[in-house]
Nucleic acid binder design. Structure first.
Lengths: 224, 224
DNA sequence: CGGAATCTTGAGGCCCGTCAATAACGGTGG
DNA sequence: CCACCGTTATTGACGGGCCTCAAGATTCCG
């Protein structure tokens, strides 16, 4: 038995399917399994054989990858409406990343075979997915360039501006722990702590605990 | 007038289209325009309005991105059979990267409208493209993790192993200038030079000019 | 052959990673 | 409500990897 109304809601907030006519969305909704995850739980680990496509209905999920030395690196953070697992719809069945739940989350999942059928039956889904994936590629390329050419202060500035934009407010609560911000930026918690202090001292932001306010977005942009 | 046989050849060596039946490949071949580029020439620059999908038939092309400070960063190198420009088939019409020809190259191009039509007419093309793009995403994620968690020596080791594998030989001529290897690895020419010396000293490789021979692939892998 | 680009080598300094210890938080149970 | 504990954050000292600057050597190519 599917909880039909709920899975439809999930589809509606996802850009990937939002443009489809209702009839097609309903057909897709029947393929979806909803699953809640609580904060701190693991959705999958690197090496797992998981061939499901997943969409975040609400909550936040971090996707991490570990180096041979065992260092954890955050590859990206999924927010509501974002998806993961497209690589596992094709050849690759084994995950090379892990997914951990940052805040209580609701996740919609479609299994590999169903999704494959969907791609062939509804070309618009494939085109829409291509569109989303091309954006993801562009964003990853920017991230590569950023970490290779900009110092930690600039990367933190970039992260704060970006986060502020995503939340549509210049005063906000950090969605990640500072130690997670550190691995996302390719640095350490100590350096992040010191860099926050610098930015505060230069009156570009205020920061008390997890609360951040952007005072001078232009000044931050100059650091990037 | 199309040079029918030539454009077909281009399709055949590209994984993106290789699995299609001949009839469909011929239809696609009619949409393709072939263009030769000479070493050092520019295919497009960041900011250009280029809405063409391009496939490398032979030769090498480097895709670069510049930071605000003006530092050039190599995002990736296209070899024969690889493609670029998928982001410009959808919303984004303006390039945010530049493409420069490393060795004399032959490039097949399809314009945006034709390719869009193709995606809707032949679902296999869309699925195949999704597959390729998902691999690109996985590779970019690995690169992000690598540059963030591994030191220059490890990154150079990784680059050499990867290049050796791509060329199917353990003794080869570097496809990139060392200064380009530097920007690809997110470091400087000086550091690359010193690191080569280290690897030679540790008898993991030999290196005379542009010529490199891998002596101990396992030893290199330990550095990653 | 000659000029330009690339590569190498050295010296010096700074960013940032590591180690270590303390402080501040945040959730839990009495 | 507060005491308690584990987690997270801060701060300092120190060292090392790598960037910068500068000069010379080598290669590339017309």
């Amino acid at each position: 038995m599917h909880t039909h109304r709920n899975t439809l809601e999930c589809l509606e907030l996802v850009p990937l399917f939002a443009s489809l006519p209702l009839e097609q969305r309903q057909a897709i909704a029947d393929l979806i399994v909803q699953q809640p995850y609580s904060k701190g739980s693991t959705i999958y680990l690197a090496g797992d054989e998981v061939s499901r496509f997943l969409i975040v209905e609400h909550g936040q999920i971090k996707i991490t990858q570990s180096s041979a030395a065992g260092n954890e690196q955050i590859v990206r953070v999924l927010n509501a409406g974002e998806f993961d697992g497209e690589a596992n719809l094709f050849g690759q069945t084994e995950r090379d990343t892990s997914a951990t739940v940052l805040t209580d989350a609701l996740v919609c999942q479609i299994n590999r075979a169903d999704f494959q059928r969907l791609l062939h039956q509804i070309p618009e889904v494939a085109v829409s997915l291509l569109n989303q994936m091309s954006q993801k590629i562009a964003q990853l390329e920017k991230q590569v360039t950023l970490t290779n050419t900009v110092d930690v202060k600039g990367r933190l500035a970039q992260y704060l501006v970006e986060t502020s934009a995503a939340l549509h407010q210049e005063s906000f609560s950090l969605p990640l722990l500072k130690k997670d911000i550190a691995t996302y930026l390719g640095t350490t918690a100590e350096t992040v702590s010191r860099t926050f202090k610098e930015l505060v001292h230069e009156q570009l932001i205020t920061n008390k605990g997890r609360q951040v306010t952007i005072l001078d977005a232009d000044g931050l942009a100059l650091l990037i």
